[in-house]
């Protein structure tokens, strides 16, 4: 469906979102380009995850629109967006814990092969599903863990699986919500390399607290504070930006 790179960009236009008294997004606009890693950083509560929820279709913005590949997808459901090639991973690891690692990856592959109203044939004995699933697991380095229950994986491996599930939907664009959360420095470096390689074929929006990872990967950075974009630009521009330093980098790199 979405094989190979296409010229797809993801754009938020004037998003507003309010939860009771909390303004989670105010006139939020940004544009993430195909073939780039676009990082979104900001202090806790800046509305980063809210942004991912809105882009992936799990939250409706109060106003504003979202454009993907030239089409307005604001009204499209979450599954509908994935079918168009816009996949996401979760900040809190959301693997299917009772499923094996292989089953975790078979499910998204089955999803991209069309509807699942097939009631008889065993999914796990279908080479059309398990073949691509095993290949993908090899690619992300979980090949020897295929038969393990996802709930029994180490934390770092679960984070890898989290990304593998998103990749298995065959997306052209990835929304990654803190993929490094809770990982050790060793695993961190491996994941940075892996995402760096993915950049050639996938557009990426990266939400991340680990600024070393952000500056290692990002081609463009948007800084959010209290649901507002306070700066957006190339990494060196962001580094130099005075407002960003006081609002965010100053705290972190004090």
């Amino acid at each position: 469906m979405t094989d190979g790179p296409r010229d797809l960009h993801l754009e938020a236009r004037g998003l507003h979102k309010r939860f009771g008294g909390l303004q989670a997004a105010t006139d939020l606009s940004m544009r993430a380009q195909q073939g780039e890693v676009h990082a979104v950083i900001g202090p806790n509560g800046a509305g980063k995850t809210t942004l991912v929820h809105m882009l992936s279709g799990f939250l409706r913005p109060d106003s504003g629109s979202i454009v993907f590949g030239g089409d307005d997808i604001t009204g499209l459901s979450a599954p509908g967006r994935v079918q168009r090639g816009l996949a996401r991973s979760f900040q809190i690891t959301s693997v299917f814990r009772e499923f094996t690692v292989l089953e975790n990856v078979v499910l998204p592959i089955q999803a991209r092969q069309g509807h699942s109203f097939r009631f008889w044939q065993s999914a796990m004995r279908d080479p059309g599903l398990t073949g691509p699933a095993r290949a993908l697991l090899e690619e992300v380095g979980l090949g020897d863990r295929a038969a393990t229950r996802a709930g029994h994986l180490a934390h770092g491996e679960q984070r890898q699986l989290e990304i593998a599930i998103a990749l298995a939907t065959n997306p052209s664009f990835l929304l990654l919500d803190e993929p490094m959360a809770g990982m050790g420095p060793e695993e961190n470096r491996a994941l940075i390399d892996f995402l760096g390689a993915l950049k050639k074929t996938h557009g990426m929006l990266l939400i991340e607290h680990d600024l070393d990872a952000v500056f290692a990967l990002a081609d463009r950075i948007t800084v959010l504070v209290y649901g507002r974009v306070i700066a957006s630009g190339r990494p060196d521009e962001i580094r130099r930006n005075r407002e960003v330093r006081t609002a965010y980098l100053g705290e972190a790199h004090a």
Partner: peptide, 21 residues
């Protein structure tokens, strides 16, 4: 079956199944 995969996965984490498309 594939149907059962979806059903069991949705019991485990419905949001994630939707995020898979």
């Amino acid at each position: 079956s594939r149907f059962g995969m979806v059903l069991r996965a949705s019991q485990s984490n419905d949001t994630r199944v939707q995020a898979i498309g």
